[in-house]
């Protein structure tokens, strides 16, 4: 079981309130991702849940029991750190065994769990190596192995993939998702990579300056961002945000339209502009259209075989059904 509830949890470092009172419900078995820009308090929130930081106010409930003052080891949570935090002088086997050794798990049970974790994580051949003799991805798997064998109520990940190269990151992302499908244990995952958030999460929590801006499934956030911040943060490339007359036409202070919801034509359409940089990804092409008079650039996604060149005049037509409208405070207008 791994149901975690935060009730008005607050964190101050000296006079600085990093997390203003915050409420959040994490259900058993959910994969929850905390995203937000750097310094918004993602790690702090995770460390509060882990017990590595003391709360300045509010309560943390784990499976309905107040765990606010419970020491980290007693909360039944396992954490995977960004730096992996492996014990450098211990072999992989000893690293994985360490939490069980501390908990006094019998030797044969330890061996059984190590074997099964090593098999699941492809570490069987490396059990007798030291962490220094492993690649980044392998170290990451050892850190995950060390977390798995504790059979925790929930896993906490703090940007576990940010030290890996792009290809490995995609691979590990899949592995972690698969692990979640297999174990069905609650996972809380911190990242500032919105692709990781979109692909892995059951539920995304978007944070800004310690505030929760929106909580919802990836598609909810994508389809109906509650405010300008979420609209700009979720989705890649970013949503186009347009102020002024073009927005007023839709009865809004700001309108937002995603690159994939704009039709491109060489000869007719609603907005006129000039093709700037274009990025050909094979399946898709992204055009950065300039001189529209709407915003600095409008990003547009088109199919892979459209024939437009730098400097060409282009016409854009937004799909009105996919238009997001925001008022002067940045909140979504229904």
């Amino acid at each position: 079981m791994g149901r975690i509830t935060l009730e008005a949890v607050t964190k101050r470092f000296g006079d600085v309130e990093v997390i203003p009172p915050l409420n959040l419900d994490i259900n058993d078995g959910e994969f929850v991702v905390f995203v937000g820009p750097s310094g918004c308090g993602k790690s702090t929130l995770l460390r509060l849940i882990a017990g590595l930081e003391d709360t300045s106010g509010g309560r943390i409930l784990i499976d309905g029991k107040d765990a606010t003052d419970t020491p980290p080891a007693k909360r039944g949570l396992a954490m995977v750190f960004q730096s992996y935090a492996l014990y450098p002088h211990m072999s992989v086997r000893k690293n994985i065994a360490f939490p069980m050794r501390m908990a006094g798990v019998p030797q044969d049970e330890q061996d059984r769990r190590i074997t099964s974790a090593a098999k699941a994580l492809n570490l069987t051949d490396y059990l007798d190596r030291k962490p220094g003799q492993l690649s980044g991805g392998q170290r990451q798997r050892v850190a995950i192995g060390r977390a798995i064998v504790r059979e925790p109520a929930a896993f906490l990940f703090d940007e576990p993939l940010s030290n890996l190269d792009a290809a490995l990151r995609v691979g590990m992302r899949l592995e972690i998702s698969e692990l979640h499908n297999r174990l069905k244990t609650t996972m809380i995952y911190v990242t500032h990579d919105q692709v990781e958030a979109m692909t892995m999460a059951d539920k995304i929590v978007v944070l800004r300056a310690g505030h929760i801006e929106q909580v919802g499934s990836p598609m909810e956030l994508y389809r109906a961002p509650k405010n300008l911040f979420v609209a700009g943060f979720i989705g890649s490339p970013r949503m186009n945000l347009i102020d002024g007359a073009a927005a007023a036409e839709y009865g809004a202070h700001t309108i937002g339209i995603r690159p994939e919801h704009i039709a491109v034509s060489p000869d007719h359409g609603k907005w006129r502009g000039r093709v700037g940089v274009s990025e050909h990804l094979g399946s898709d092409t992204f055009f950065y259209v300039e001189d529209t008079g709407l915003a600095d650039t409008i990003t547009v996604r088109a199919g892979g075989n459209i024939d437009l060149h730098h400097g060409d005049t282009v016409f854009l037509t937004p799909d009105d059904a996919q238009m997001h409208r925001f008022d002067a405070t940045g909140a979504r207008v229904a």
């Binding site: 882990a50 017990g51 590595l52 020491p71 980290p72 080891a73 949570l77 396992a78 954490m79 750190f81 960004q82 730096s83 935090a85 492996l86 014990y87 450098p88 360490f98 939490p99 501390m102 908990a103 060390r146 504790r150």
Partner: peptide, 17 residues
């Protein structure tokens, strides 16, 4: 490394361990 110490703390190791 501070994170190592924190990892050990979460792994249930007391100050002496």
């Amino acid at each position: 490394d501070g994170e190592q110490m924190e990892a050990a703390e979460m792994d249930g190791a007391g100050a002496v361990s």
